[in-house]
Amino acid sequence: MNIIAMIPARYAASRFPGKLMEDLAGKPVILRTYEAALKTKLFHQVYVVTDSKIIFDTIVNAGGKAIMSIEEHECGSDRIAEAVMEMNADIIVNVQGDEPFTDKKSLAGVLAVFENDDEQEIDLASLMTPIDNEEEINNPNTVKVIVDNRNFALYFSRSPIPYPRSGAKNIPYFKHKGIYAFRKRALMDFRRLPMLPLEAAEKIEAIRYLEYGKKIKMVETNVSGIEIDTPEDLERAKAAWI
């Protein structure tokens, strides 16, 4: 399989504008993420795809590969779909630009699901990690996912799902980590399909795939990493960087 990694990198993040250009141990966050993806050696090519000349120049000047978006995009999947339209690729992996602690073992687990999928039942795969912190479970910035008994995604939400109506304890909760591996055809379908009400309500792009009947295989990982969504996250990342 020809596997490429695409790192969507939008400069104007709503919660932390310019976060991808913030310094992390002497290099911008986006460059740290790009280098982490390269270091896994899981991909034939790694690209940053961006709407920002600053980010583009940062990657290219460091010897990396970057693509400037032509159109305006609402989400990372749309940005990647435009960039890979004419590329020869079987699997495209969306690595989030704000995750410089990208973990090779977790990524390898996501890619492995396609190796045994002879009937091509799986349209895309993604990661989930167990959470038991009540504050995080109830935090709308943490996207939760519920799965069936084969670990196919049933739904994603910013609300705590499942809801413990009867006060049941020991209910498993999973946080969705926004790393996706797509079959190219699923990504091309995403680009042409309009947003529907559930995605619009939750602002979670994975829901569009479910609304149109795509099958998302979830892979459990215990590596939570540090996603840089806020200045406080950046300080945690700096403290954790070795």
Score class of each variant (00 low, 15 high):
98 D>Y: 06
81 A>M: 09
91 I>N: 01
133 N>P: 02
113 V>L: 11
154 L>H: 08
26 G>I: 06
239 A>I: 10
169 K>I: 13
116 N>V: 14
58 T>L: 01
135 E>P: 00
45 Q>D: 14
183 R>F: 05
30 I>Q: 03
179 I>E: 08
171 I>K: 13
73 H>W: 11
162 P>K: 11
30 I>E: 01
116 N>S: 14
178 G>W: 02
135 E>I: 03
227 E>S: 14
87 M>N: 03
220 E>V: 15
108 A>Y: 07
33 T>A: 09
107 L>M: 06
28 P>D: 05
20 L>H: 01
48 V>H: 12
67 I>M: 10
92 I>H: 03
36 A>S: 10
86 E>W: 02
52 S>F: 09
34 Y>I: 04
99 E>T: 09
145 V>D: 00
226 I>E: 15
219 V>T: 08
5 A>I: 14
213 G>D: 15
205 E>Q: 11
155 Y>I: 04
85 M>I: 05
14 S>H: 14
212 Y>M: 11
223 V>H: 15
184 K>F: 05
103 D>R: 10
236 R>Y: 07
159 S>G: 11
139 N>H: 10
120 Q>E: 12
140 P>K: 02
35 E>L: 09
190 F>M: 08
119 E>Q: 15
67 I>L: 08
160 P>I: 06
175 K>S: 15
133 N>R: 06
42 L>D: 02
131 I>L: 02
87 M>T: 00
33 T>Y: 08
215 K>V: 09
61 N>Q: 13
38 L>A: 00
168 A>F: 12
14 S>I: 14
205 E>N: 12
10 R>I: 15
199 E>A: 03
66 A>Q: 05
111 L>P: 07
38 L>F: 01
65 K>N: 12
100 P>G: 09
162 P>E: 00
190 F>C: 09
94 N>Y: 03
99 E>L: 14
29 V>W: 02
177 K>R: 15
181 A>V: 03
32 R>F: 05
48 V>Q: 10
215 K>S: 14
85 M>A: 06
51 D>P: 13
242 I>P: 12
188 M>D: 08
95 V>G: 05
131 I>Q: 01
139 N>V: 05
91 I>K: 03
168 A>Y: 10
149 N>Q: 11
101 F>K: 10
221 T>K: 00
170 N>E: 14
164 P>I: 08
28 P>H: 04
234 L>Q: 06
22 E>Q: 13
242 I>N: 14
209 Y>N: 12
105 K>S: 11
12 A>K: 15
171 I>W: 12
72 E>F: 05
135 E>C: 00
47 Y>I: 06
80 I>S: 00
11 Y>V: 11
35 E>Y: 02
106 S>E: 13
188 M>C: 09
196 L>M: 07
48 V>E: 08
